[in-house]
Amino acid sequence: MLKITNLHANVAGKEILKGLNLEMQGGEIHAIMGPNGAGKSTLGNVLAGREGYEVTQGEVIFNGKNLLELEPEERACEGVFLAFQYPVEIPGVNNTYFLRAALNAQRKYRGEEELDSVGFLRLVREKLKVLHIGDELLHRAVNEGFSGGEKKRNEIFQMAVLEPMLAILDETDSGLDIDALKTVAEGVNRLRSPDRAMIVITHYQRLLDFIVPDKVHVLADGRLVATGGAELALKLEEQGYAWLEDGGIGTLDETGATQAGTP
């Protein structure tokens, strides 16, 4: 579904991603962990097409398409969804109105019939039920005055309605207390599906207690330097990232982990 090859990207003239490779199949959840400044959020923003993130080398093939050639809205319509680390407040734009406009833009792109307000509301109610969240978010302006937890929940709610094929959760756990974290993680788990791949970007392991990934990658200095199973995350929690400077994955006492690039 997704194949990232030798991805290099600059932000403000500085190289942040330095040859990143990643391959994912539908239904998989991959966690990307790493120290601050490693390029985790850059990866999410590059995939979503944010301005100011300049790809200098490499390619990203998503369902057979060259993702990097598409505008941000085309990527969304092709099924890419970025759950923002800092969801943007948009005063005066009703959350329901916004989401319906977005869904209909995507449906139109795919040649599907647009939903009227009745049909949309039915869909929304269904998704709220699946996520076990109330409808109070619907009547408010997009993210305006939302608490940290509400903002992240709203991202997950949007994801539920837009049903992306590839969801990138950019530090969805940041700034959340444990209860809010659980709520958000439960939402994500309910949206796991064989046709949906997810990239979970996080600094801390604790989110992965609730969203158990198929694979864990360590991103350091713009490259994936280690890949392992869910247990790699626990090891990282225990031992931190100091081993990166101490000579690589070999120094990490972890049998499941392998140096990136080796099978």
């Binding site: 979503a48 809205e73 969804f81 406009a101 869904l103 997009v142 949007q158």
Partner: peptide
């Protein structure tokens, strides 16, 4: 805000109009 709207599938013109 423009990028946020575009990342959800709305084009630049729709984003401008909404905002």
């Amino acid at each position: 805000a423009v990028f946020y709207l575009r990342s959800r599938g709305l084009n630049q013109e729709q984003a401008r109009q909404i905002l």
